[in-house]
Design a protein around this nucleic acid. Structure first.
Lengths: 282, 282
DNA sequence: ATTATTTTGTTGCTTATCCCACAAACTACT
DNA sequence: AGTAGTTTGTGGGATAAGCAACAAAATAAT
């Protein structure tokens, strides 16, 4: 390639130097864009794209369309891919559940994408309650408002940005709350289940320490069975869902006397339905 | 109108509600993209574009191509304005201190902007040690690597994204570690001091539980005296600084037999060297 | 109810980014 | 050297984002 010399700029930087500079830049600025970096380093956009992808792989930056931004706090995993798709459902569930909470209550909230949405909904309402959680995102979301947040101790689990372990369980045993609101990865007629053992134990303990035992669960989890059993249906008081369960599960829920709260999709929209040519879902 | 609209209805949000949620989202995630927001709010991309532009106008977010990111490093807004300025110094101090830590060690790290830098430096080195901290950013930064992170319980303090309180202190008393590394807001010949009472108590307890008691402090803190006394100079073993203290403070440090480690400005390239091992596998 | 104002959605078009595969250039190693 | 492996650049088609102006609702005001 022609070593094009441009006004005072570097001819060619090695890969590592480029990437170090990118990281440095992101310490000062919240966001850089690819086109800008390509010009600065006198390299092609593809090269910079590869740089950003590599850095994002290592979790050093957060990739975005057209550029990248600093991972702000240690990255919030957002375990997504599909999480983005299901956000609308989770949001509806979360809002419905958040509406139940009154000022002055004490509650426990566990970790997971659904409960993070719950935390956002509560933060938005700015409810003045006391919350015990093992989820760092939940604590951070609620901590800025009127709520009083108590974080559990424990071993940090990056996959969910939460803490787990014996310290967590032991800590929870010191408290009793009005209500607990938890999520789950599996929900069937047999009850609540989890794929990760550590999280199952937390949920179980929270259920034990709470007066009202409430579950937030998306309909995509119906029928799913995780590795570890958390609780049977008789261990629950309320479930918040985005769609009514099918008959078999529904029958089991009724038999257990569980209050089913469905977050409806369209409460006051008669016209919007017909004008949704592109985005039919949500 | 729309009084009881709160619960479970995400059908249509008003402008202000949308924008509040966007800000909330950016507390957790470094970057949001327009297409994603449009889907979530069931609104057109244009609307969201207008939202982001408006928020950016107010300086509440940082606009980017295709989305927006949180402004500055601000999500740990905390600390203060000067945090951005002093980043380079803190980074040097942090790298110097991080180089001291070996695999298998146990250490306590407290909260603050300097110790977050320390956590980043340790994360780069990927040291395999056990860490106890009350800082959420520190936990999240180190949690993804080889380190084993134990988070303290306590009341969440949004100003520093850390936990404090009696639960924290009580928890710390159960542990003994090889080394503790803490920051401070004030450092003078009389010792270490803090402006916030809760944080002072944490630091004091950590110093008590550690074999090696090490302080990371920028030269801008020299001579500063906070409200609450944390420890005298005789309570410290090592200080990591970015510049040699003046004679009066220096004399006091010598008298106390404190090891002074100065992070020189010149030996840069630390950044590129730190990243080298990481890029082998790209 | 009827305006006025604000807010949102849509259309058409331009531009930028993405992604993939392959070729060119560079580096390291025997 | 020469070769193998890496790193970078280029091209083209697909996709997403930007922009501007106007139309359609929704909201507020009279």
């Amino acid at each position: 390639m022609v070593p094009a010399e441009q006004g005072g700029n570097v001819g060619k930087l090695k890969k590592s130097e480029r990437r170090a500079q990118i990281l440095l830049e992101l310490k000062l600025r919240p966001h850089v864009r690819i086109s800008e970096l390509a010009r600065r380093f006198n390299a092609s956009a593809e090269t910079l794209r590869r740089d950003l992808d590599a850095l994002a792989q290592d979790g050093l930056i957060h990739r975005a369309h057209g550029g990248a931004s600093a991972p702000s706090r240690g990255h919030y995993p957002s375990l997504d891919e599909r999480t983005v798709e299901r956000t609308a459902e989770r949001e509806r569930i979360a809002h419905l559940a958040a509406a139940e909470v009154h000022d002055g209550e004490t509650l426990m909230i566990d970790s997971g994408s659904t409960t993070i949405e719950l935390a956002k909904a509560l933060a938005y309402r700015d409810v003045s309650c006391s919350i015990i959680t093992n989820s760092l995102p939940v604590a951070m979301t609620l901590g800025h408002g009127a709520a009083n947040v108590m974080l559990c101790p424990g071993e940090y689990q990056p996959s969910e940005s939460a803490v787990i372990g014996t310290e967590t369980l032991e800590f929870l045993r010191n408290y009793t709350v009005d209500r607990c609101m938890i999520g789950t990865s599996g929900f069937s007629a047999e009850g609540v289940s989890e794929t990760v053992h550590g999280f199952a134990a937390i949920k179980r303990e929270m259920l034990r320490r709470a007066g009202l035992r409430q579950l937030l669960v998306g309909s995509e989890k119906f029928g799913q069975k995780g590795l570890v059993r958390v609780a049977g249906l008789d261990g629950l008081d309320t479930i918040f869902v985005d769609a009514r369960p099918q008959k078999k599960l529904l029958a089991a829920l009724d038999a257990a006397g569980i209050d089913i709260r469905v977050a409806d999709r369209v409460p006051t929209r008669t016209h919007s339905e017909q004008m949704k040519p592109r985005e039919e879902n949500t």
